[in-house]
Design a protein around this nucleic acid. Sequence first.
RNA 1: GCUCCCAUCGUCUAGGGGUCCAGGACGCCAGGUUCUCAACCUGGUAACACGGGUUCGAAUCCCGUUGGGAGCGCCA
Length: 489
Amino acid sequence: MMSSGKQTVVRTRFAPSPTGPMHMGTVRTVLFNYLFAKNRAGVFILRIEDTDKERSLKEWEDDILENLQWLGLQWDEGPITQTQNYIGSYGPYRQSERTEMYQKYLKQLLEQGRAYWCFCTQEELDAQRQHQLSLGQAPKYTGTCRTLPSGKKDQYLNEGRSPVIRFAVEQKIIAFHDLIRGEIKFDTNLIGDIVIAKDLNTPLYNFTVVIDDFEMKITHVIRGEEHISNTPKQILLQEAFGFSRPTYAHVSLILAPDRTKLSKRHGDNSITRFRKEGYLPEAIVNFLSLLGWNPGTEREIFSSDELIKEFSIERVQKNPAIFNIQRLDWLNGFYIRKKDLPQLTKLCIPYLTARGEGSALEPIVALYQERLKKLSEIAELTDFFFQKNLAYPKELLYWKDASDADTKRMLDTLAQLLSSIGEGEWTKEKLAEIIMPQAEKQKNKGYMLWPFRVALTGKKASAGPFEIAHVLGKEKTLQRIQEAVARLS
RNA sequence: GCUCCCAUCGUCUAGGGGUCCAGGACGCCAGGUUCUCAACCUGGUAACACGGGUUCGAAUCCCGUUGGGAGCGCCA
């Protein structure tokens, strides 16, 4: 195991396969790896597991790289790349670029007789599995290729069968300590000889992980719960090579509200979708890290640096957590409210395309900063500022029991009052100073303020009328009131 | 079917034998503020899955039941 005298540097890795968009659940796993490594002043590695040539796509690798960058989860090591678009100067490790090394280890196993060529066909294996299932047994490989006479081998080759490489699984009890779950035991009797490579150039997952974790000196394997049952296979492989065993920590899954594994059928839960909708990386990081972990205090808000400082893997929850978007929304709103205006405006611009320049939009964004749950909402909330003609039913102008005539009279009074205010003193304070006394004369301020606000926005919910009138300017404000009057009677 | 994992408010969780007729947060409800919607403040609702042990004492330890989840590939 690990040397106890000198302190070993902690090394963790995130090892995704680029076969689809990066999900929220995946992000949480990365986060735990990242936080754990950083908390121990260790090294965090990114390894792209692209051994499946059919399913691995460059598009998805880019998706992973982009999102990690966006989230601020930078890896510390990797091959230096020429065309580096990412923070730092390291590219990711890619398993597709390491086949020679895997081959070396594969040959070693073959020579030692720890692995062998298996000639069984897909049909034979399927039949075997069906048979075992029908007997109520766990399906496992029980073929005889392990001890195949060499004559038979030639015969199969002549038949055109293409063999795979199987690892001869030793029958024993494998126990390992999991940082989150404690002792876990498996009887390898239930595991058949596993396929570790399709051929010498095509190694498979359970094999490559073991080699890479050793070669990259990974000390802690933090991964999803779905890998618990792979662990004994990997330990067996490690033992065959005499590799030291990393420490394991299996993180529970994130579940959809129906309590099943979060998947496509629960809608789009890709990190890219949340990014596009206008969730902030700090909100996602804060939210995900508290999904299944907390420092034992009543604190809810954490920056990345604070998370790094507080994080401990032992405090990670064993039971799976349900993805609860309302809490994410709340956190997102919190972080939006905390942004300074120029920064927030900049973030909103993509959602306000062709509606003006940055600084011109600031007053508008300011009115809605505390109403935003996600950035994308800014578009609909503020559309009335940019529309030439507002579309709303005239009934919307009525406050409570106010009649058409009442409302018209209110708007006329308002127009009169507003006209008296000079362009130069058109501030929300001045507007309130002139209008409020009149509004207060009504049975209820709503009789004047409601139609005022609706005339300006065409909406039943919005920011206050004075601040909106201020941003709109005198001319547009009066014009919108006239338009409202024209709708009545 | 087999193997493994899990089990506190609707949700995320605190709790690791007595200080818990269970605390916080989100949500929800009510009130305050308010022309509206947010934001903000105050209050409220709501949980130890069940059954056996162990113990003077159990949400906390053990066993079982039930329930949920994951895995059982020439995917990762």
